[in-house]
Simulated assay, not measured.
Amino acid sequence: MNAHASSLPRRQSYLDVYLRVLSALMLRDMRSRFGGTYWGYLVQVLWPCAHLAIIVGAMKFRGLRSPMGDDTMVFVASGALPALAFQYISREVMKGYLVHKPLTYFPQVKRFDTVVARVLVEIVSSFMGVMLVCGVLLCFGSDPVPADLMMAISGYLAAIGLGIGIGTINVGICSVFPGWALGYILVTLTVYLTSGVYFMACYMPDEIYYYMKWNPITQLIEWVRLGYDPTIPVQVDYLYLFGWIFGSLTVGLLMERYVVRAQQ
């Protein structure tokens, strides 16, 4: 009896099944980008470098100088990286839910699992993009290391946190109005262009700067840039930003509980 029992396959625990589901969803995420191969995932990781090259090239062509320090590449990277981290995560979490929705007919796959898997993939992609950009900056003779490393890293992590919070809200909206996936592209484009990625928001007229400060992405960019130049005349409202991060995450989780699950 004991010999027979020992020969039976071990029953997998709930955690084992859950981790296997997450890993399968993450691999599917990576293969579903740009043509259905892992090379497509590499294209997404390389996109921040291409983005940086385009913007720096445009500034050089127009003869614009960096308003923060003497390095245009570092100035653009310090604004673009946190803004893109927020933009990609908040958008891709929603797209991941839509792409993997048919898989939720399997009992092992829950809709929230698709959100968790896409969040993990996007976090890894974000840090890979940062390391790649830093390598490119070093190759061109720029110093990507901030004066206050913890300040810059904490600002970037806050951008990721806000992207996760807004992404979960987008999932709730998309579960009811799938067309929001297209509408949100216009929202992120508007926010990106008006957040101070290519200029210093603090040097705008006070009347304009006052309203720009209500945009959390503007303050996240200033948070990261404080790590590179602590002398810039900005004051980040950390309480306001953490309110956005934890408030959006709370609303998103409530929507997942009472809106997304109601659609099942």
Rank of each mutant, 00 (worst) to 15 (best):
H4V: 15
H4P: 13
Y14K: 14
R20G: 09
A24K: 07
M26E: 09
R28I: 08
R28E: 05
M30I: 10
R31Y: 10
R33L: 07
F34E: 10
V43W: 00
W47V: 06
V76A: 04
L84F: 08
L84S: 10
F86W: 06
Q87A: 13
M94H: 05
M94L: 11
Y97F: 13
Y97V: 08
P102S: 10
D113F: 06
A117E: 01
V121R: 02
V124T: 15
S125D: 10
S126M: 01
F127M: 02
G129W: 03
V130R: 00
G135F: 00
F140A: 07
M151F: 00
A152M: 05
A158H: 03
I169C: 07
I169Q: 02
I173G: 04
S175G: 13
G179A: 09
W180C: 08
W180G: 05
V187M: 11
L189C: 13
T190L: 12
T194P: 00
G196P: 03
A201G: 13
Y209L: 08
Y210E: 13
Y211S: 02
K213H: 06
P216W: 03
I217A: 01
W223R: 01
P230R: 06
V236E: 02
L241N: 00
I245G: 03
T250E: 07
R257E: 08
Q263T: 15
